[in-house]
C-alpha cells in the first residue's frame, strides 16, 4: 500500500540511460572505424589511440584531484574525447603530439570551462585544431610506405580524378579514423538505431555539402560523391557534430546547425586555401549554438504562438 502513496518531486519520467551508457555506445560505434584504421595503418595507429585516450583520462583525473572536484573519469566522456582526437591523427605521428593535444583538449577546453556539459566547443576538435596550427607539417603528413601522400580531397583540389570505390572502403591516405566510409556508416547507423543521436544533423550536414559542391564545384556526380566520402565529413557528421554539449537541442535548431556546417565546410573546401575544412567548420558552428537555440525555441505547450 505504501507504494501507492509514494509522493516524489519531478522528474517522474525516468530512463535507465546515463552519461556512461551513452558514452559507451559512442565508443562502440567508433570501434569499426578504429579497427579499420589499425588494420590499415598498422601497430603505430593503435599506439596513437592508446596514448591519446590515456592522456585524456589521466589529465581529467589529475586536474579534478588537484582542484578537489568530484571525479567524473568513470563517465567515459574523456575516453570518447580521446578516441575522437586519436582518430583525427595521421597514423605516423610522433606519440607526444597526440598526448599534448589530449591534455589541451581536456584541461583547457573542457575542465577550465567547468567540466562535462559546460565546454563551449568540442574538446577533441579544439585539441585537433590546436595541433594542426602548431605542428602543421607533422599533422598533415599522410605519407605511408607504398602510398602516395596526397589525400583524395587534395587530389580533387589539384584537379585530378579519384577512385570512389577505394574511398568508400577506405584504401586511401588520411587520418586514422576518417578513411573508411563504410565503417563510419556502420557506426553512425548503430548510434541512430540506439537513439543516441538523431539523424537530423548528419543528414542535413551531408546534403548541404553535396548541394554546395554541386553548385559551386563541378556539376558532376562523381565529384560530389568524392566530396561526401572524402576527408573528415562522414566522421565529423556522425560523431563530432552530434556531440550533445555543443550542438543545438531544438529540432529546428539542429537542422539550421547542419546547414550552417555544410555551408562552412563547402566554403573552406572549395574556396579556402586548404583541402579540408570539417574541423574548423564544426568548431566555428559550435560557437553559434547558443544563438541558434535562442531563435529556434519551440513555443511552450499552452502558450499560443505569435499571431
Amino acid at each position: 500500500m505504501s507504494k501507492l502513496l509514494n509522493v516524489s518531486a519531478s522528474p517522474h519520467v525516468r530512463s535507465s540511460e546515463t552519461t556512461r551508457s551513452i558514452m559507451t555506445d559512442v565508443c562502440i560505434a567508433m570501434l569499426p572505424a578504429t579497427a579499420f584504421g589499425v588494420f590499415q595503418f598498422g601497430f603505430h595507429a593503435l599506439l596513437v589511440l592508446i596514448v591519446t585516450v590515456a592522456a585524456c583520462v589521466l589529465s581529467e583525473y589529475v586536474f579534478q584531484k588537484i582542484m578537489k572536484l568530484p571525479l567524473t573519469v568513470s563517465d567515459m566522456s574523456a575516453v570518447v574525447t580521446g578516441m575522437i582526437l586519436a582518430l583525427n591523427m595521421p597514423a605516423n605521428i610522433p606519440l607526444w603530439i597526440p598526448a599534448l593535444g589530449g591534455i589541451f583538449a581536456i584541461i583547457v577546453v573542457k575542465q577550465l570551462y567547468g567540466g562535462i556539459g559546460q565546454n563551449f566547443m568540442n574538446p577533441a576538435l579544439a585539441g585537433r585544431c590546436f595541433l594542426l596550427i602548431s605542428f602543421a607539417g607533422k599533422m598533415s603528413d599522410f605519407a605511408m610506405d607504398g602510398w602516395s601522400g596526397a589525400t583524395p580531397l587534395a587530389q580533387l583540389k589539384a584537379g585530378e580524378t579519384v577512385d570512389l570505390a577505394a574511398m568508400f572502403i577506405g584504401k586511401i591516405p588520411g587520418t586514422i579514423g576518417e578513411v573508411s566510409v563504410i565503417a563510419l556508416l556502420v557506426g553512425g547507423i548503430y548510434l541512430a538505431v540506439r537513439k543516441v543521436i538523431s539523424l537530423r544533423i548528419p543528414v542535413t550536414y551531408i546534403l548541404t555539402v553535396a548541394v554546395f559542391a554541386f553548385i559551386f564545384g563541378k556539376q558532376d556526380m562523381s565529384y560530389v560523391m568524392a566530396h561526401i566520402c572524402g576527408g573528415g565529413l562522414m566522421f565529423g557528421a556522425f560523431f563530432m557534430a552530434t556531440d550533445y554539449v555543443t550542438s543545438p537541442i531544438t529540432p529546428k535548431g539542429q537542422i539550421v546547425f547542419g546547414v550552417l556546417l555544410g555551408i562552412l565546410t563547402g566554403l573552406f573546401r572549395i574556396f579556402g586555401g586548404s583541402a579540408e575544412g570539417v574541423s574548423y567548420a564544426i568548431i566555428i558552428s559550435n560557437l553559434m549554438v547558443p544563438l541558434i537555440e535562442r531563435y529556434t525555441l519551440p513555443t511552450a505547450f499552452g502558450k499560443e504562438g505569435k499571431k
Binding site: 599534448l100 590546436f130 596550427i133 602548431s134 605542428f135 602543421a136
Partner: peptide
C-alpha cells in the same frame, strides 16, 4: 616548438 603560441590564440 608549439607554433600556436606565436599566433593570436
Amino acid at each position: 616548438r608549439i607554433t600556436i603560441f606565436g599566433l593570436a590564440p
